[in-house]
Design a protein around this nucleic acid. Structure first.
Lengths: 127, 127
DNA sequence: CTGCATCCCCTCAGATACTG
DNA sequence: CAGTATCTGAGGGGATGCAG
């Protein structure tokens, strides 16, 4: 069809966008950062991440495993134990995510004040 | 209630999560990277980003402006011209986003092959 | 303990039509 | 050109109950 010499991130079909979407997932990034520090069990993750439902957790874990970012290891105990850990691939991604989180923590105040300024502006308009 | 000494990104109320969510937005990042290269007009953005609706574009532009990441400049021509450009704050964020996009482009193949492996595994199970 | 299946709500985003 | 307003469907995600 078209011989794109380099990926166009703005095209709908661009696979890079798939990755970006995954990173944008509400929970995926949090899970990634948690299991990077140490392998974690299902319910440990559930407790660690405030507000996540069991359905979402299991769903996101599955897709992260599918993408090769985390590893699922079943230990045949009674009852069964399942441990999630990060893969080398996932570790490289988490580095990029770190940069993002750092930015967020560093610039949070500035963003919040920009929001206040914007809202104040709008309110004075309305009045 | 609790005297958190440092922000807990896993807590529901953590404002850092707000930022992460914004970055995870399907369109926001694309817009940010586009206007960073050069100031762009509304319809130029619309054309550049395949698949975005005019409603979403206007909505995302507004929230990016609210966050202080882009700047909206109205030029009093007939008909009116509106130009969107990146702010210094937005530029620093876009740097972190670059790292992410680079990761995506570098590791896309590996992710896709991990997905294929995972799916093959599941199919053989089913059979 | 670690999940899957179901129900169900409610938001998000696309389509369409209209305005300054 | 640069938006806003309204309607509507699709689906993301929570709650609950059951299973290996």
């Amino acid at each position: 069809m078209k011989a794109a010499t380099k990926p166009n991130a703005y095209a709908a079909n661009c696979p890079t966008r798939q990755i970006l979407d995954r990173v944008g997932d509400k929970w995926a990034v949090l899970i990634l950062l948690l299991v990077r520090d140490e392998p974690m069990r299902f319910n440990a993750l559930r407790r660690a991440i405030e507000g996540i439902s069991q359905k979402m957790l299991s769903q996101v874990l599955k897709s992260l495993e599918r993408d090769g970012l985390i590893r699922r290891r079943v230990i045949a105990t009674v009852p069964v134990t399942v441990e999630y850990s990060i893969t080398p691939l996932g570790a490289t991604l988490s580095t990029a995510v770190d940069a993002l989180r750092d930015w967020a923590e560093s610039n949070l105040k500035e963003v919040l004040s920009a929001q206040r300024r914007y809202d104040a502006q709008r309110n004075s308009m309305a009045a």
